[in-house]
Amino acid sequence: MLLQVNNVSKSYAGAQSSICAVNNVSLQISKGEFVAVQGPSGCGKSTLLLIAGALLKPDSGVVLVDGQDPYALNPDTRAGFRARTIGFVFQQFHLVPYLSVLDNVLAPALAVPGNAAETRDRALQLIERFGLSDRSQHVPAKLSTGERQRAAMARALLNQPKLILADEPTGNLDHQNADALLGYLAEFAIGGGTVLLVTHDDRAVAHAKRVIHLQHGEVAEPIVS
């Protein structure tokens, strides 16, 4: 198993009482699997994704990514582990506004020491692969939404992660760009990578090998495509 989430719960403190975002959720995703998590707004999809991504420590339960419990690591070691193992793609792209496409793609390399020239070559290859070669020196504000998401996808892949966590990646894209992005994620899974996709988009579900339905912070039913 590349990702194991065992009996994980997470609550947020509210004005009156705490709100349970994820309640005793367990899931296991194998290497090379493309799994989609579906559910209505506020059901805890994004929280589950952040917990799986070693960004949000659960109140209870255990998370293992590639056999490692990231929350057992100190924050900086966890950051390094995250940089090497997990790639993120978000609905809002979350590109650094003053960096060019190339620099944005290279940003995760800051966390992983390595050969700068090789890293740059890899970044350029990714940029080319996502059709952004002529935009490599442009800042995000100069890009279309589809281009921004492709840049974010390239960034997620720079450190050759084993797991990609995608939170509504097609939410701001037109059909064409959404299909293209889902295609890239599927390719990553075919290439041996693992994808956990949180989405409302039914088309995205079509690319998933397995769909987990989340409701009120709990896994409702497994759907096999």
Binding site: L55, A79, V96, A107, P108, L110, A111
Partner: peptide, 16 residues
């Protein structure tokens, strides 16, 4: 705030 969050998410350490 946002860009620092992004950089932290992609793996930058607090010292960086």
């Amino acid at each position: 705030t946002e860009e620092i969050g992004i950089l932290r998410a992609v793996g930058l350490k607090s010292q960086q």
